[in-house]
């Protein structure tokens, strides 16, 4: 127990990195999710197909494979392009960037399905009514689709977010000093791997439990106007 206290700084630092990574990748994921949902629902066939390929391809391949591919391969691609076009000098992708972008893009595919389902759950008549009173596409989205979409998307969103928090643990494999990495290093140097891995387990459990609680409250707030069956 004393040893854990001695290494508390590493655990706290690691936890902060994990939280930053999760939040940063969430922003990317939501952007990709909205884009993907628009693509899937649009009447443009090319946008439709691209969104389809995006979600199928990303959901068919394990996250760790993509993280490794982006971290080791992405650097080479970017530098080859840079060399060929002279647009930029040698770029180094750090672990945080690689992890954030990859996890963001991966979960964007899952949010795509969530958002698509939520938009489709909105009764068509309401959108038609919006058009009928003279709203343009943006106003329809802002006043009719968006507020209801949040309500319909929240349950799926919560599920995805909980999986996403857990997925961030994988970036320790490419050497980002997140919670798992720091706990592992501390455990190995003190020969107390069980205790330190257990500590990181508990911290992850706290993170998912708190998110779960907050999202349940949020869900209750947004579905106030709904009759629960």
């Amino acid at each position: 127990m004393n040893l854990i206290w001695e290494y508390r700084q590493q655990l706290v630092d690691g936890t902060l990195v994990t939280i930053q990574l999760a939040l940063a990748s969430l922003i990317i994921a939501i952007l990709f999710g909205l884009l993907g949902a628009m693509g899937k629902l649009s009447s443009n066939r090319i946008a439709n197909m691209m969104a389809g390929i995006y979600t199928t391809a990303v959901r068919g391949v394990p996250d760790l494979v993509l993280i490794l591919l982006v971290f080791y391969g992405g650097q080479e691609i970017i530098n080859t392009i840079g060399k060929a076009t002279d647009w930029w000098k040698y770029v180094e992708i750090n672990q945080f960037m690689a992890g954030t972008c990859t996890i963001g893009v991966i979960f964007g595919a899952y949010y795509t399905e969530t958002f698509r389902g939520a938009i489709m759950a909105i009764p068509k008549g309401q959108i038609e009514a919006g058009v009928a009173v003279g709203m343009n596409k943006f106003l329809v989205f802002r006043h009719i689709i968006w507020p209801q979409m949040i309500r319909y998307a929240l349950p799926g969103f919560s599920n995805n977010w909980l999986v996403q928090i857990k997925t961030t643990a994988l970036v320790s494999v490419i050497g980002l000093q997140d919670l798992v990495y720091n706990a592992f290093v501390a455990g190995r140097s003190t020969h107390l791997l069980f205790i330190f891995m257990f500590a990181s387990l508990v911290i992850f459990l706290l993170m998912t439990a708190i998110s779960d609680l907050l999202l349940t409250l949020l869900n209750r707030k947004y579905s106030k106007g709904m009759v629960r069956t």
Binding site: L162, K166, T167, T168, A169, L170, S172, V173, V180, F184, G187, R188, H191, L192, L193, F194, I195, M197, F198, S200, L201, F204, L205, T208, A209, D212
Partner: peptide, 23 residues
């Protein structure tokens, strides 16, 4: 189920593979 669903599989695997050797 709450513990195993709320934590990453990576950590669970490390806990068993690396952790149990501590005892």
């Amino acid at each position: 189920t709450y513990v195993f669903r709320g934590t990453p599989l990576l950590v669970q695997t490390y806990l068993i593979y690396y952790g149990l050797g501590q005892f």
